[in-house]
């Protein structure tokens, strides 16, 4: 078992490295661009040339990637902090420390000064959404799956298909049209700043609702499928035949066994939420991580894009790791083999 966990861990770390190399390759594919984008469009050509040689942009991609990793883990000094470049880049943490993500050319500060606050805002949004999606999906999925083919089942399933067909930006537009334009109950933007007259909690309602609407249907479908399968098993029939009330059959025998398969799906929702927040944060101008990635990509802020993607990948791979291990622990068939 421990051996399997270690093997899984190593393979996920390798996946992570390969994925971050891919991002590095895409963003830094043309070296001339890297220097130009770091310095901005108005920098003199000499500075660009100096940075080009300073960063060793002539070297092949894998070497540059290794160097980037070196700066990241604190084994190498960040070349961008060299005063000779005229970047005026000052990092109070020094030029060599663990998790040195470099310098954001968009915000003109060290990446570490922007990224964690944004990540915290997104964690709040995604955490609230996750906290609503899971119980809602479990209840709906169990209700639908306990009597397959019933009216309730068909209703919940159709509801699930409809909500998963509405992308976040569309449901955002619908909700804004109803609750902001028509009823005037809620604010249309969520800058997380009480100055505009709307308390912070009211600014969270619509973004959270958008995420919940889009993701819940999918989890409901998974829970329903698993529940329906369990309810067709012989031990359920036995429990019913021995006279146990249907309610007890569902709660004691059905639910407990039906929760194993959806466990992974539920954890992997965290990954979908990372995707979902990009759009949701754009709809509501929410100062979060997803919007930051989009703005950084559009601006060409290479260091920030690489840092943010790496963090998103770590979250994604870590949840995958937890869900694989958890699945193995929950499922006796795998645990014992």
């Amino acid at each position: 078992m421990i051996q399997a966990v270690v093997r899984k861990f190593v393979s996920l770390v390798l996946t992570l490295l390969a994925a971050s190399f891919l991002v590095f390759a895409v963003t830094e594919f043309s070296p001339g661009n890297v220097a130009r984008k770091t310095l901005g469009p108005y920098a003199p050509q000499e500075s660009v040339d100096l940075l080009y040689s300073k960063l060793g942009l002539n070297d092949p991609l894998p070497i540059r990637y290794a160097r980037w990793l070196g700066v990241l883990v604190g084994a190498k000094a960040d070349p961008l902090q060299d005063p000779a470049l005229g970047l005026d880049f000052k990092d109070p943490r020094g030029d060599r420390y663990f998790l040195n993500f470099g310098y954001s050319s968009l915000y003109k500060v060290p990446v570490n000064d922007v990224i964690w606050k944004r990540l915290g805002n997104t964690a709040l949004l995604a955490g609230l959404a996750f906290g609503l999606i899971v119980p809602l999906a479990l209840v709906l999925g169990i209700l639908a799956g306990m009597r397959e083919g019933s009216v309730l089942d068909r209703t919940i399933s159709v509801f699930g298909i409809v909500t998963t067909s509405v992308p976040e930006f569309a449901s955002g537009v619908f909700l804004v049209a109803i609750f902001v334009v028509w009823l005037g109950w809620l604010p249309g933007t969520s800058p997380l700043d009480a100055g505009a007259g709307w308390p912070i909690w009211s600014q969270l309602i619509l973004p959270v609702a958008v995420l919940v609407l889009y993701d819940t249907g999918y989890v409901v479908r998974m829970v329903r499928g698993s529940m329906a399968e369990v309810m067709s098993k012989a031990y359920i029939r036995t429990a019913i035949l021995k006279g146990l009330p249907f309610r007890d059959v569902v709660v004691r025998h059905g639910v407990r066994n039906a929760m194993i398969a959806p466990f992974t799906v539920i954890l992997l929702q965290i990954n979908f939420l990372i995707s979902g927040v990009v759009v949701t944060e754009m709809v509501f101008s929410y100062p979060g991580f997803g919007r930051m990635i989009l703005e950084a990509s559009l601006f060409g802020d290479i260091q920030l894009v690489e840092a943010a993607t790496l963090i998103a990948l770590v979250v994604a791979v870590a949840t995958q790791f937890v869900s694989d291990i958890g699945y193995a622990l929950l499922n006796p068939q795998i645990r014992l083999s």
Partner: peptide
């Protein structure tokens, strides 16, 4: 590829 949050 599949380890990426797809929109990112």
């Amino acid at each position: 590829i599949l380890s990426f949050p797809i929109i990112i």
